[in-house]
Design a protein around this nucleic acid. Structure first.
Length: 129
DNA sequence: GCCATGACGTTCC
DNA sequence: GGGAACGCCATGG
């Protein structure tokens, strides 16, 4: 098995009980920023008798990705609820409350702000020319 | 080795 | 704030 697969599993195992992490953050902690889809691939390849808390991994929207009707999604929701993770009315988890690690979430917010700033300056540059 | 696909993310309307 | 388009990395055919 590839090294970063193992890293992905290791990172997921580090997620504290009652917290959730996004695919993007897992990918970044595993050393491959932008490889969020690969994280999903690695989790889908997990054996049944694994010790990886895959249910603590959700997408950036705070929702369960794979078909909300699927039994795996129901199981994931049940496991998270059992650990004390609350779901908002829309069916999404509040990342600012349950997101892990908190630092990564803060950086994500900061990067979002920086992106907005970059976009604005880019637009100004476009107007210039 | 190229093309399509997927438990995703970010950027731009 | 929500939806569409493009980008991303690894895998399978």
């Amino acid at each position: 098995m590839n090294p970063f697969y193992h890293r992905i599993y290791r990172v997921v195992r580090h997620i504290p009980k009652g917290r959730v992490a996004t695919y993007g953050i897992i990918a970044r902690l595993a050393g491959r920023p932008g490889a969020a889809r690969t994280v999903g691939w690695a989790l889908s390849a997990l054996p049944e008798d694994n010790d990886v808390p895959w249910w603590r991994v959700i997408n950036a929207a705070g929702r369960i990705s794979f078909s909300g009707q699927d039994h795996s999604a129901v199981l994931q929701r049940a496991l998270l609820l059992r650990e004390g993770v609350r779901f908002a009315p829309g069916g999404a988890v509040s990342l600012s409350t349950f997101g892990w690690p908190a630092e990564a979430y803060d950086s994500a917010v900061a990067s979002h702000k920086r992106a907005a700033s970059t976009r604005r300056s880019r637009r100004l540059k476009g107007l210039r020319t």
